[in-house]
Design a protein around this nucleic acid. Structure first.
Length: 820
DNA sequence: TCCTCCCGCCAAGCA
DNA sequence: TGCTTGGCGGGAGGA
C-alpha cells in the first residue's frame, strides 16, 4: 500500500509480482498486513530470487504479465482505487453471496446442457472446473456430490466425472420416493413432531424416551446410496464415509420432500431425521448444527437445480426455514421402474399403487395403533340427524352457539388434525366434488400435526394410552394440585401464564400433561396445522395460503352450522384427547375466529375416569347427554370458551385469572370426591357413585357459582339451579365494567358424580352497575362460605333458561387477582 | 441475535 | 507417498 520508495525502485519484477495479487479471484492482496518497515515477505523474496536465477521463470512471468495486461490494467486501477478509498477494498471483494454455493452451482450447471445428447458424453474435469470457476476444489465436490445423488453426474475416475444431465432425474426421483416410502419417512416426520411437542412439555418423561427409542428403531439404520442401473456409484471412499456422504444425505433429503405432503420440509425436521438415523439419543447440538450446515449445502445445489425453493414455515414457535419441492411431480410408483435401491431397509416393497388419497389416509391413520378408524359418511349423517333430533328436543336456546363454539374448541389436542378430522375424513370418504389435488392439499395441510389420531366416535377414548397425547399441544396447562391433607389431587386447567404462576408460586405444584381436551379453538388448530408458509418471493405464499384459507373458511361456517354434530363427535373423543393445547400465542390469537377463554378451574381428577363414551351413550339415550357434553368427561369443563369474535367485542383478551387465588379449603377437599391421578391411566368405565347433590354442590360452591348455603337437588337429569337471590353481592362489589361490554358466559360443567353436564350461564344480577373484575374472579374461586359468595347464577343442564337469564359481565380489563 | 453457509483443516482412501 | 475426496466445524457475513 505504502511501499517505500526504496523498494519500489528496487525491482520492477517485484512490483509486477505484487500487482496480480490485486486480483480478487486469485490470491487476495493483503496490503494492510504488509509491515511498512519490511515489505519483503519471505515469499516474494524467494520468488525474486528464483526469478533472478531462472530466466525461464522470468520469461514465463513476463508472458503471464502480457497476457493478463488488460485485466491487469483494470486491476491496477482497482488497486489504485483501493488505495484511494482505503478499506473500500474489502467491498470490492466478491461478497459472500457472490461466492455462494448456489451461485457457483449455477455457473457449474451453465456449463452443461440439461439434456445432453446420449451419443456424446460430456466429461467433467474437476481441475478445469475449479480453474474456470475460480473456486476451490472442495466446493466443486459439494456440488458434484449432490448432483451425483441425483445421478446427474457420475464419477468416472479420479478427477473425472460424466455429465448425464437430467435424463435420469425422473427415474431417480421415483426411486427415491419409493425408498422414502419404504423407510417410512412420513411416520418419522410425524413421530418427530410428536416427540418435539412432548419434549417441549415434558423433556424427561419416559414417554419421550420410549418415543425416541421407537423412533430410532423404526427408521432404517443403514440406508445407503440409492443407485440406478447403469449409473453406478464409484465413490472414492466406497465404505465408511459413503454412508455419511453428502450424496446419501442429499438423497434422503430429497426423499423427505417426495414422501411428504405438502412437499415442504423444514431443515430442522430434516436434520433431526437424518441424525436420527445415526442415533437420535445422541442428538447433541453440534451434531445438529453440522447437519444443518450440510443441509444448507445440499439445499443450495437443489435450489440451483430448481428442485426446491426456500420457504419459511411460520409455526407457533416461530419462523422456521424450510424448503418446498418445486421439482417434477413424482407419480407414486406409477410404473415399477427397474430401479435398484440399495437401501438396506427391511421394509417390504410397496406393491400397491398409492393414490394421493391413500397417502392422505395413511398420514392421518398411521397403520400402527388403534386409531385406525374412520367414520363412514353414513355415520356422519346419522350423527347429524341424532344431533338435529336432540336440538329439537332441547329448546332453541339450548343449542347455544357459544357453547358450541367452545365445545368445538374443546377439541382434542391432537388436535390439529383431529379438529379437522371429521371434515377431512368426510371429504375423503365422500369424495364429492373434490379433486384429488384438493384432497391431497387438505391432508397435506394437516400433516404437520398428523400424529396418529384416534377416531373420535368409534372407540372408548379412554383406552387411548396417555402417552399418545402430545401434551405440549395444550394451551391450557393442567396443573395437578396435590392436597396433602386429603392425599388427593386436583387438576387445575390453566392458561400457560397462569400455570407458570402456579408453579412459581407453589413448588409443590407440578405441571403435568394430562389427557384432557384441547381447548384451543379450531382456528388455533388451523393456524398450527396450516402453517403459514411464506416464500421469499411471495408467490408461493399465495398458493399455499389459499388452501389454508379455503380450509379455514370451510371450517368456520361449519363451526356454526355443524357445531352440534362436531360437538358430539368430539365430545366422544374427549377423554383421550384430553390434553389441552398449550399455546403461547393464545392471547395473541384472540382475533381468530374461535378461541377459548382461559380460566382456572378445579377439577377433581375423577373426571378423566368417569367420562367415557359408554356413559355418554347411556346419557344420550336418556336424552341427557346433550351437545354440551363436549365437556363430557373432560376437565375442560372449567374453561370458559368463547368465540373470539365475542371476545373482541368485550375486549376479553385481557382476562386473566391468577391461579394463586385458587385455594381449596381442607373442608372442601374432604368433601369432594378425589382420586389420585393414577386413575387417569385407567380406561375403565367404572361406575360412578350415585348422583350426589353434595358433590355437585361442592363443585358449584367451589367455583363460586352458588353460595355455600344453596343446595342444588341432585338428579341425573337436568336440573335448574336456582338463581341466587344474593347475587347482588358480586355485582355490587364491582366497579368498572361497562354494561354494554358485558357478556353472557356460558360453560358446561360436568359432574363426575352425576355424570351429567350442566350448562351454566352467568349474569350479573344488577347489570347497571359496573362490576369489579376482581370480585368476579374471587367469586369464581373462593371457597365456600367466604364473603361475597353469591354470584348471580342460573344454571341448568338443558340450558332452557340459559341465555335469557344468565349474563356475567366480563370485565374489559385484565383481571388481576391478588393473593388471598 | 440468529440464520446461512464459506472456508479450510485434516483424515480416509485411492493410485 | 502424494493426491483426491469429503467430513466436519469455526466463525463471519447477512438478515
Amino acid at each position: 500500500l505504502k511501499t517505500p520508495l526504496k523498494q519500489a525502485a528496487t525491482s520492477q519484477l517485484v512490483l509486477t509480482e505484487r500487482q496480480p495479487d490485486c486480483q480478487p479471484l486469485t490470491t487476495p492482496p493483503k496490503p494492510k498486513e504488509t509491515p511498512p518497515a519490511d515489505p519483503w515477505t519471505p515469499t516474494s523474496n524467494l520468488k525474486m530470487l528464483i526469478s533472478a536465477a531462472s530466466p525461464e521463470i522470468r520469461s514465463r512471468e513476463q508472458r503471464r504479465q502480457l497476457s493478463d495486461s488488460s485485466s491487469e490494467a483494470l486491476q491496477t486501477k482497482h488497486c489504485l482505487q483501493e488505495h484511494l478509498l482505503g478499506d473500500e477494498y474489502e467491498k470490492s471483494q466478491p461478497s459472500r453471496k457472490e461466492k455462494s454455493l448456489g451461485l457457483l452451482c449455477h455457473k457449474f450447471l451453465a456449463r452443461y446442457p440439461d439434456y445432453p445428447s446420449p451419443s456424446q458424453k460430456s466429461y467433467i474435469c474437476l481441475d478445469e472446473v475449479t480453474e474456470e470457476l475460480h473456486v476451490e476444489r472442495r466446493r466443486i465436490y459439494d456440488i458434484v456430490n449432490v448432483l451425483e445423488s441425483l445421478h446427474m453426474v457420475s464419477r468416472l475416475a479420479r478427477n473425472r466425472y460424466v455429465w448425464h444431465g437430467r435424463h435420469n432425474l425422473p427415474q431417480t426421483l421415483q426411486a427415491l420416493k419409493k425408498v422414502g416410502e419404504e423407510n417410512k419417512y412420513i411416520q418419522q416426520i410425524q413421530m418427530m413432531k410428536k416427540r418435539e411437542y412432548e419434549h417441549e412439555f415434558d423433556p424427561d418423561s419416559e414417554r419421550n424416551e420410549e418415543m425416541a427409542s421407537s423412533f430410532g428403531s423404526s427408521e432404517q439404520s443403514e440406508m445407503s446410496f440409492v443407485e440406478l442401473p447403469g449409473v453406478e456409484f464409484r465413490a472414492a471412499s466406497v465404505n465408511g464415509r459413503k454412508y455419511k456422504s453428502l450424496r446419501v444425505m442429499s438423497q434422503k433429503f430429497v426423499m423427505l420432500f417426495l414422501v411428504s405432503t405438502p412437499q415442504i420440509v423444514s431443515l430442522e425436521v430434516a436434520a433431526k431425521i437424518l441424525i436420527g438415523e445415526d442415533q437420535l439419543e445422541d442428538l447433541d447440538k453440534s451434531k445438529f448444527k453440522t447437519k444443518i450446515r450440510r443441509l444448507y449445502d445440499i439445499a443450495n445445489v437443489l435450489s440451483s437445480l430448481k428442485l426446491i425453493k426456500k420457504v419459511h414455515v411460520t409455526e407457533e414457535r416461530g419462523r422456521k426455514p424450510a424448503f418446498k419441492w418445486t421439482g417434477p411431480e413424482v407419480l407414486p410408483n406409477a410404473q415399477d421402474t427397474k430401479l435398484e435401491a440399495t437401501s438396506t431397509t427391511s421394509s417390504p416393497p410397496i406393491s400397491e399403487s398409492i393414490t394421493s388419497k391413500e397417502q392422505c389416509s395413511k398420514a392421518l391413520f398411521p397403520s400402527k395403533g388403534k386409531q385406525n378408524f374412520t367414520r363412514h359418511s353414513s355415520l356422519i349423517k346419522l350423527v347429524k340427524s341424532i344431533e338435529n333430533d336432540r336440538r329439537k328436543i332441547q329448546s332453541a336456546p339450548t343449542s347455544p352457539v357459544k357453547i358450541s363454539a367452545s365445545t368445538y374448541q374443546s377439541l382434542p389436542v391432537f388436535p390439529n388434525t383431529i379438529a379437522q378430522f371429521p371434515a377431512i375424513t368426510k371429504h375423503q370418504l365422500e369424495g364429492q366434488s373434490k379433486t384429488a389435488e384438493e384432497m391431497q392439499m387438505k391432508c397435506a395441510l394437516s400433516l404437520p400435526e398428523a400424529v396418529p389420531k384416534p377416531e373420535p366416535s368409534q372407540q372408548p377414548a379412554l383406552s387411548q394410552p396417555l402417552g399418545v397425547c402430545p401434551a405440549s399441544h395444550s394451551s391450557v396447562s393442567p396443573v395437578i394440585l396435590p392436597h396433602p391433607q386429603s392425599g388427593v389431587s386436583y387438576a387445575i386447567y390453566l392458561h400457560p401464564s397462569q400455570a407458570h404462576t402456579v408453579t412459581t408460586y407453589s413448588p409443590g405444584f407440578m405441571l403435568q400433561p394430562l389427557p384432557c381436551a384441547n381447548v384451543t379453538g379450531i382456528k388455533s388448530n388451523n393456524s398450527k396445522v396450516l402453517n403459514k408458509i411464506t416464500t421469499e418471493e411471495g408467490d408461493t405464499q399465495r398458493g399455499l395460503d389459499e388452501p389454508t384459507k379455503s380450509l379455514a373458511a370451510e371450517e368456520r361456517p361449519e363451526t356454526k352450522s355443524e357445531t352440534s354434530q362436531r360437538c358430539l363427535k368430539r365430545s366422544q373423543a374427549l377423554p383421550e384427547t384430553n390434553l389441552i393445547k398449550r399455546r403461547k400465542s393464545d392471547e395473541e390469537s384472540l382475533d381468530t375466529s374461535l378461541t377459548f377463554f382461559p380460566s382456572g378451574y378445579l377439577i377433581p381428577l375423577t373426571h378423566c375416569t368417569h367420562g367415557n363414551k359408554a356413559e355418554c351413550s347411556t346419557k344420550e339415550k336418556a336424552g341427557v347427554c346433550s351437545l354440551q357434553h363436549t365437556a363430557y368427561s373432560s376437565p375442560i369443563t372449567g374453561v370458559i370458551p368463547m368465540p373470539a369474535s365475542e371476545l373482541k367485542t368485550v375486549n376479553i383478551p385481557a382476562f386473566h385469572i391468577t391461579p394463586l387465588n385458587i385455594m381449596l379449603s381442607p373442608n372442601s377437599i374432604a368433601a369432594a370426591p378425589v382420586l389420585s391421578n393414577s386413575c387417569l391411566n385407567s380406561s375403565s368405565t367404572s361406575s360412578a357413585p350415585n348422583p350426589s347433590s353434595s358433590a355437585l354442590n361442592f363443585m358449584l360452591q367451589h367455583i363460586g357459582l352458588i353460595p355455600a348455603g344453596v343446595q342444588i337437588p341432585a338428579n341425573p337429569v337436568v336440573q335448574h339451579v336456582p338463581v341466587s337471590s344474593q347475587s347482588e353481592n358480586i355485582s355490587h362489589s364491582s366497579g368498572s365494567t361497562n354494561v354494554q361490554e358485558g357478556k353472557v358466559i356460558e360453560f358446561t360443567f360436568y359432574s363426575p358424580i352425576n355424570e351429567s353436564n350442566f350448562l351454566f350461564s352467568l349474569q350479573p344480577s344488577a347489570p347497571k352497575e359496573p362490576q369489579e373484575p376482581q370480585a368476579v374472579t374471587e367469586n369464581f374461586f373462593r371457597t365456600p362460605g367466604g364473603p361475597n359468595t353469591e354470584p348471580a347464577l342460573s344454571a341448568n343442564s338443558d340450558g332452557t333458561q340459559r341465555t335469557s337469564q344468565g349474563a356475567l359481565y366480563i370485565p374489559q380489563r385484565k383481571l388481576e387477582v391478588s393473593e388471598d
